[in-house]
Amino acid sequence: MGIGKIMKDAATRLFRKPSTIGYPLKPERVEVPDSYRGAIDFDPKLCVGCMLCVRFCPSGAITVADKRRIAFDLARCIYCGQCAEVCPRKAIKLTKEFELIYESIESFKQQ
């Protein structure tokens, strides 16, 4: 009897801790793994200007801004991590930061 099994499962669930959490209202941290691909962290001091990241970014989120500086547009970014992978100096890292909420589209642009 499948229904019997479902009933038993539901009845025991009633008294167990729920699988969901009250995010973001409850101050419970959502843990993401170390390999998570979140917001981009770029260290301009390490950059040698090889432009490989610009060439391989699938969404065109990485551009060359004025004064030959690399600029990232996190609104265009698809967080694939290809830039971090091709960077010969490891100047680009993808952090564990995933709560990327900005009030304007302009503030997604980072240098």
Partner: peptide, 10 residues
């Protein structure tokens, strides 16, 4: 999958 690859999907 998330622990292995970093993301749930993609």
């Amino acid at each position: 999958l998330e622990e292995m690859t970093g993301n749930r999907i993609m």
